[in-house]
Structures are given as structure tokens and as C-alpha cells.
Design a protein around this nucleic acid. Structure first.
Ligand SMILES: [Mn+2]
Ligand SMILES: [Mn+2]
Ligand SMILES: [Zn+2]
Ligand SMILES: [Zn+2]
Lengths: 151, 151
DNA sequence: CCTATACTTGTAATGGTTCTAAGTTAGAAA
DNA sequence: TTTCTAACTTAGAACCATTACAAGTATAGG
């Protein structure tokens, strides 16, 4: 697995793309930057709007194509919204999501907190599920559903 | 919270519907029965096909309407497929799902196993997430992603 | 029974996503 | 640097799951 870019300079992202066998284009750079600097998990259209505002000169089809390429190459993940449209996440590491029942929005749980929870799952029970069901668990995806206290 | 019907007789389901303030109709009974007796988590169209085969005399619009009514009243839940169409689940109790990476299919983890895992989550970390983020956790939704050993 | 209200249904509309086919470009090779 | 080709971009059409609509029908309470 390749390392995640914390820098979003042209050079850094180009390197990242090369490592993932993706051609580096103006449009892909713009989409990746817009996605990676977002704390929310934007839809394809939200990214398109944002880029159009910035006059990046990109088509909606390319936003979709790029997101598909990023997901396929492991630089992003596609999240089911539960609603109408898909959401995209530039964090591919295991991390938890917080879903606000009121708005439906998805937020990341800070990585350190999330990792502590994932590391403290009852491993014996997971093993038991695996052996009992003949299933090999690859990833445990957790979503904390609730609401912000200030509501 | 009302009790889940383990019997799917007309009388039992009618009682369930009355408790949930839903009118009892031939079509809703058919949809609920078809959903509740499924071990998979069918799409609206899968239910429609199944009912059409059985000459239940029901329209696709009604399948959608009924599923929406069931979800709104708490008798079913809507699951994001990750793919194109939504999946429905007559189990509203907390339970885990197994996602087969190969096929994308969703299966239930047997309730006893799932409950043991949920009961053994590190509660202190959950509390910490709540206080740290000012978020009140209502439900912990877990999906085990992997593949069946026989592949 | 009667009636009000909720439900059903065929069909049209919606909207996110994918497809197509024609131009353009990145990046490798010479 | 020049050339070449596979990969990428794009506008618009197509697709398809879901929702909206409007006209008929059935449920359940009084
Ligand atoms: Mn994120
Ligand atoms: Mn189920
Ligand atoms: Zn995330
Ligand atoms: Zn389930």
C-alpha cells in the first residue's frame, strides 16, 4: 500500500498518481485536491460545483471519471450515502464515520480515536464469526449514528 | 419499541400493522411477508419480481410505497447497497452485516454472535468519542467486509 | 351501511450516473 | 525535440432506480 499525500503540491500529487499508475492531468489534479482538502465527504456534484466556481474548466463527466479512477486505484473510497447520491472520501485508511441523523451528513472520527476503537474490538468474537460462518473478514466498517449534542 | 413478528400469519401481521398505525391491505401483507421471510436483503425490484411470480397482483409503485411505509413506521430498514439500488431489511434490531466483496451481497450475522460483539465494544472509547466530539451516539452500525472462505 | 381518508396503480417525471463518439493530451520512445 | 499512440476529456444522449402525479379503490371507524 502506498502512502497518502499530506501535501497537495503539484509535485506531490503527481508522484502519488505515478505510484498509482494514473496519468497526471490538470483536471485530475483539481479533483483530487478538492476532494483531499475537504473535511466533509462530498458528492460528485458538490466537487463539480466547487471546481466550476474556481473556473477550473472541468466537465461533470470528468469529475465522475476521475473519481472512478481514484477509487479503482485506491486513492479514494466511495461511500454509500443512504440517500440519493454517492459520497467520496480521500481517506482510504480504516477510520470511523459519524452520521448525523438530523442532516444525514457524514463526518470522520479523528483517526487516533477511531483507531483506538478498532484496535479494541473483541478479537475473539470476530474470529468466532469467521470460523462459524466460513468468512474471512477483511475490514470492519463502523458508522456511529446519532446527533450532535447542540441540537 | 414493538415486538417483531416471528409469525407471518395474516392475524399476526395485521396486529403488527395496527400497532404501527398502518392500514392492513392485501398488498402490504404480501410485501411484508416476502420481505420478512427472506434471508437476503432484497431490492424493491426483487420483491416485485417475487410477488409477480406468485400472481399477487401488485404494482411496482406499491412495492416502493409499502417499503417506505414500513421503514417510516419502524417495521423495516433501508440499507445502502453501495451499488445502484437500495436494499431492505425486515430486521430492525441491531445486528451486523457481512458484505461479500466478491458479489457485493449482504448477509446477516446471526443475532447471538452479533449481539456479543456489540456488547463487547470498548464502551469507554465510545464515551470518549461522544464527549470529545459533542456527539450523542444512538446506534453503532457495523459491516464486516470480506469474502467467503470457499472462494 | 356510509364516509372520510388512506391506499393502489399506470404512467410521467426526476435526477444521479454511465455511455458514446469525437476531439485532445500526456508521456514514452526515437 | 519531434512523433506517436493509448489514455483522457467532453457534451450530450441514454439509462434506470426512484418519486411524483392524478384518478380510481378499499379500509376502518362511526
Ligand atoms: Mn475524510
Ligand atoms: Mn435480514
Ligand atoms: Zn471518511
Ligand atoms: Zn440485516
Amino acid at each position: 500500500m502506498h502512502q497518502q499525500a499530506h501535501e497537495l503540491t503539484e509535485a506531490a500529487v503527481q508522484t502519488l498518481f505515478v505510484q498509482h499508475h494514473l496519468r497526471f492531468t490538470r483536471q485530475r489534479y483539481a479533483v483530487y485536491r478538492a476532494l483531499a482538502c475537504e473535511d466533509i465527504h462530498p458528492t460528485a456534484d458538490q466537487l463539480y460545483q466547487k471546481l466550476t466556481d474556481n473556473k477550473s474548466g472541468i466537465s461533470l463527466a470528468t469529475v465522475y471519471n476521475t473519481l472512478e479512477a481514484l477509487v479503482k486505484s485506491g486513492l479514494a473510497q466511495k461511500l454509500a450515502d443512504g440517500g440519493t447520491s454517492a459520497r467520496y472520501d480521500a481517506s482510504v485508511d480504516d477510520h470511523l464515520h459519524l452520521r448525523d441523523r438530523a442532516t444525514g451528513s457524514l463526518m470522520d472520527v479523528p483517526v487516533n480515536l477511531g483507531k483506538r476503537l478498532l484496535d479494541n474490538l473483541p478479537d475473539n468474537i470476530l474470529k468466532e464469526i469467521e470460523s462459524e460462518l466460513g468468512f474471512s473478514i477483511n475490514r470492519v466498517q463502523i458508522e456511529l449514528v446519532g446527533e450532535y449534542a447542540g441540537n
